[in-house]
Amino acid sequence: MIQTIKNNLEEIQMKALGESAITVQFGAEISPSINKKVKALASKLQHESFSGFIECTPAFASVTVFYDPFIVKQAYGEKAKTSFQIVHAILERMLEVLVEEEESKPRIVEIPVCYGNDFGPDLDFVAAHNNLSVDEVIHLHASAEYPVYMIGFAPGFPYLGGLSEKIHAPRRPSPRTSIPAGSVGIAGSQTGVYPISTPGGWQLIGRTPMALFRPDRDQPSVLSAGDIVKFIPITKEEYDQYQERWQ
């Protein structure tokens, strides 16, 4: 059944991200009810965008709307108003009533992970930070089901909810300049996988041999929002076998 969401605009924050974007924040936590609003606004923007709209980036609890201030002003050009005010008003109107996306049955994707050692240089930190043993961290990380809330950061990078509070860990004090593709990391209450080699600041606990970004395919991201991810612990030998098989 299609549900409509009525929003109390006072509970939603809208902030400028420079002169060319506005971030609509529905909250500050990972929660299915907040994320439903995110998806509903993102979908509404795809279907009834406005002149000057470039694209939007949905996140856990926010949607950032990118626009060209020059085109907005030309199209809606009320003399006294700035483009920010014009887009702000358009978004407020859109937010009054949102239509919840219909949810299909989630796809379950198993991702094999070799935890620790060179593959997870921050596993010890995550364990120490939470007064746990390394094995307890691995067990906790590999025993949950993680809904994919969003794809972001890098092509195909899944942001996962559902991380056990017992293994939350802050981001690194300074991001690494290069992280190998396949690295599995933790940042605060989030966990995810780096699909390509890139700089990044998450605490790394393991690595998967599975390629999550396949640029030669029509749908280059293996995962999409709504999928459920399960991490399956594997040994170094199994990791090498997978890699041989998949390359």
């Binding site: 924040q25 609890a61 802050p170 981001r171 004090p173 300074s174 209450s189």
Partner: peptide, 20 residues
């Protein structure tokens, strides 16, 4: 005070500051 944010969009020219 230190805090951890939920990831959200950044833009060209965003200046972020890690905890170092």
């Amino acid at each position: 005070q230190p805090f951890e944010l939920l990831s959200e969009a950044v833009a060209n020219g965003t200046i972020q500051v890690p905890s170092d």
